[in-house]
Design a protein around this nucleic acid. Structure first.
Length: 261
DNA sequence: ATGGTGGTGATACCA
């Protein structure tokens, strides 16, 4: 079995103790991180190495920043930008581990429907789609995971009246953009194993949202056609969200059976 | 009804 996780840590500086504790208890093979908020020289790759994880990372100060951790060696140079997209923001990293291609995304938040940041979100997702089209051609065993900042459908929001067609994270345009990624031949791994609503990966820090169960499922793991039959489980680990000074996101964990033979 | 919380870093900005 291979365990692959995604977690928006909202500052790796602050969350390093949480990450260490979680790595030790969950024992994932591969972890995609978002919002590390660290310049590359400050990335704690030595500490992670002492815990048994190699890392590749692409960060900046204060905002954004992504990384992939792996117990097994990376077997190709990593990519840290969307080909052909002009973008200062460090939001993507792709790496290869064994027979798996891993693409880690920190999708643009988008602020509000109709804003400039919303337009940037949709433009960015279009460029990512064209990149993923090429990645799929080159790497049939593709996992695309991260903070998508999009709740795929109404089961993925606590209140569809609040999170509606005009709200950021659930708008018609964002959901269409996500569907066009899936149309490349990708599958929302969580939905391969769970049908119901009320499963969330993010809760606002404000108004006791976590305690009251008011969340969204916006952290996703997508798998290619070739990997679909290897998905054994996909779960959201809410426990780290209960810890003191938590990230506002919970880790999402995919379990893949090993290829036969 | 606005502000409610948190990270960064020193003041607003982003989420």
């Amino acid at each position: 079995m291979t365990t692959i996780a995604t977690w928006n840590v909202n500052s790796l500086n602050v969350r390093m103790p949480h990450l260490q504790q979680w790595l030790q208890s969950a024992q994932p093979d591969i972890v995609a991180l978002q919002e590390t908020k660290l310049d590359d020289p400050k990335f704690p790759d030595d500490v992670l190495a002492s815990l048994g994880y190699r890392s590749v990372f692409c960060g900046q100060k204060t905002y954004n920043g992504v990384a992939i951790l792996s117990r097994k060696p990376f077997t190709a140079e990593c990519i840290t930008a969307v080909p052909g997209l002009e973008d200062e923001q460090k939001r993507v990293i792709a790496a290869t581990v064994g027979d798996l291609r891993i693409v880690d995304l920190y999708v643009v938040n988008g602020q509000a429907v109709g804003s400039e940041k919303y337009a940037y979100k949709l433009r960015w997702l279009e460029a990512v789609r064209e990149w993923l089209r090429a990645e799929l051609q080159a790497h049939p065993n593709l996992v695309v995971l991260g903070d998508f900042n999009i709740a795929p459908d109404d089961r993925d929001v606590h209140d569809p009246a609040i999170w509606n067609a005009d709200s950021i994270h659930s708008s018609t345009g964002e959901r269409a953009a996500l569907q066009s990624l899936l149309a490349l031949g990708l599958h929302d791994a969580f939905r391969l194993k769970n049908d119901g609503g009320g499963h969330f990966s993010w809760w606002d820090y404000r108004m006791g949202a976590f305690r009251r169960g008011l969340g969204l499922r916006i952290d996703l793991i997508l798998v290619s056609d070739a990997l679909k039959s290897r998905v054994a489980a996909c779960t959201i680990d809410r426990e780290p969200r209960t810890w003191e000074r938590p990230s506002d996101h919970a880790p999402v964990v995919l379990e893949l059976t090993d290829p036969y033979p």
